[in-house]
Nucleic acid binder design. Structure first.
Length: 477
RNA sequence: GCCGGGGUAGCUCAGUCGGUUAGAGCGUUGCUUUCAUAAGGCAAAAGUCGAGGGUUCGAGUCCCUCCCCCGGUACCA
């Protein structure tokens, strides 16, 4: 039986059109997925949309559309995004699907039976403009810190989940498993917050109609976050055989703003149900645009569809993975993208493939990669592989790519040093051996790049196989 | 306020247990090759390592003070 690996992205809230941040998360998860598949794992890779809640209701109204229609349309945008980005997910889950509702109800019942749900009163200070609650200590002169307006004191019935019960267990789990939350900076933040006593969480909403009704009280719907988190069980068909094979999840890829929800809220829900915790919660950073925060008011969101259309899917994937640290914020700058495109892709990878294939095609050298003997580059290949695999295990995509580009540089030097175009005239035997070294190396480069740039990798392998130069991989901009 | 991370070449960053002239990539400049996408190769210029003080034979690397930037500070997707 194949080793199993379950990776998920967060499901997106489709109240707005997808932006580059949504793309980054899918691409990162896709790279991991393809990498694991290349290592022989059977991977379940899920993405999707989180479609309930007040904000969806409001967005639909604003767009002047029927709610269901609006939700379908918006969800499709995200589905298309993953297609355009060449994401190799094998499920796209929507929280409005029947299969999801069924799983949510099953989970809810388990938690309820376990005595972890109780009715109480929620009181809080509510700012209507923010649509959110504040604690007394966060107010400025008794007013909302953002709108500088008075807040309403709300006091209403709600159902709580006994999250406090699991504080100790989760806290110990995080302390014991150093990489449960990655990177460490996020882990520290969570541990720091856990120093204070954990509050139980309100999991029902009376005012929200667009949601899954509480099975124990139809006048409430389930808080959208609880609903959303359970998607990770729905996608692997809880509690059936696929679930048995794939739970616990190996990695949840998420944004840095929702680490708390995935480690603490999700973690305590799972403990209540009696399930193991996911093995890793991996948080990526956010993208700024030309130094500015992405924001609706600045209207500076970069449209990933247009970007791919202009530059191609692999260059966009490459740029986001090479230029950004996988866990920290990164700045998106179009000039920078074009620089990277020209220097790394056109002049680097593309040109190398082009010159090697021209040479090999001319003399019909046939790739012989079984030949272990004195390949002048085998040492370099090996050293690249080591760096690459280590970086991949640590989820440092930029470092993995850097190691591949070092190897590309080595190939260019190797060509320069051996001058195969001269050998072709006076030393055909040596010529063949040099070209073979190069073919073996660029084949390895193509393999290593497959998780990052699947189309490009395939094109290179095809050229090698046919021993024929194909069309220019990356025309200079 | 409190907690955490950071301030190193024009840009993005790396600098392990403190140790000889501080590194890489991109960009810039010069030389050079022709197999190749006017790409490649070689070389060079470029940094008072945020500021000040201290420990030490020796500090980007440890300690103190200060300045600046960013993140977190629970029911917002």
């Amino acid at each position: 039986m194949k080793k199993k690996f379950f990776i998920s992205t967060a499901i997106d809230y489709p109240s707005y059109f997808p932006h580059l941040g949504h793309a980054l998360e899918k691409i990162q998860a896709d790279v991991l997925t393809r990498y694991k598949r290349s290592q022989g794992f059977e991977v379940h890779f899920s993405i999707g949309t989180d479609e309930h809640g007040l904000k969806m209701e409001k967005s639909a109204k604003k767009a002047n559309k029927d709610l269901k229609e609006f939700v379908d349309e918006m969800s499709d945008n995200f589905k298309n995004l993953s297609k355009v980005l060449n994401i190799s997910n094998n499920d796209f889950i929507r929280t409005t699907e029947k299969r999801h509702k069924n799983v949510v109800l099953k989970i809810f019942k388990k938690i309820y039976k376990n005595g972890d749900i109780y009715k109480g009163r929620y009181s809080g200070l509510y700012c209507v403009d923010c649509e959110s609650y504040y604690l007394q200590k966060d107010l400025v002169n008794n007013k909302c810190p953002i709108h500088k307006k008075g807040v309403e004191e709300i006091n209403e019935e709600t159902y709580f989940f006994r999250m406090s019960k699991y504080q100790k267990k989760i806290s110990e789990h995080i302390k014991k498993n150093k990489n449960f939350i990655t990177p460490q900076s996020r882990r520290n933040e969570i541990l720091n917050r856990l120093k204070d006593p954990l509050q139980d969480i309100s999991i029902s909403r009376k005012t929200v109609k667009w949601g899954i009704p509480l099975p124990i009280d139809n006048s409430f719907t389930l808080f959208v976050w609880i609903d959303a988190l359970i998607n990770y069980l729905t996608t692997i068909d809880y509690p059936n055989s696929r679930f048995q094979d794939f739970w616990p999840a190996d990695i949840h890829v998420i944004g840095k703003d929702i680490v708390w929800h995935h480690s603490i809220i999700w973690g305590s829900l799972l403990l209540s149900v009696g399930l193991s915790l996911p093995k890793k919660i991996f948080s990526h950073g956010f993208i700024t645009i030309e130094g500015e925060k992405m924001s609706k008011s600045l209207d500076n969101a970069v449209n990933p569809f247009e970007l791919v259309k202009k530059y191609g899917v692999d260059p966009v994937r490459y740029f986001l993975l090479r230029e950004f640290s996988s866990t920290e914020d990164g700045d998106f700058n179009i000039g920078r993208l074009e620089e990277r495109y020209n220097s790394d892709l056109a002049n680097g990878l593309g040109n190398l493939v082009s010159r090697v294939l021209t040479l090999s095609a001319k003399s019909a050298v046939i790739l012989n990669d079984s030949e272990e003997s004195d390949n002048g580059l085998s040492k370099e290949i090996k050293s690249t592989q080591e760096k690459y695999h280590q970086a991949m295990e640590e989820i440092k995509f930029n470092e993995a790519l850097e190691s591949v580009w070092q190897l590309i540089g080595v190939c260019d030097e190797y060509i320069e040093k051996n001058k195969p175009w001269e050998l072709a005239k006076n030393n055909p035997e040596k010529f063949n051996s040099i070209i073979n070294d190069l073919l073996v190396t660029i084949k390895e480069i193509a393999n290593l790049l497959e998780p990052f740039m699947p189309e490009t990798s395939e094109k290179i392998l095809k050229q090698i196989k046919e021993n024929k130069k194909g069309e220019t991989l990356f025309p200079r901009l």
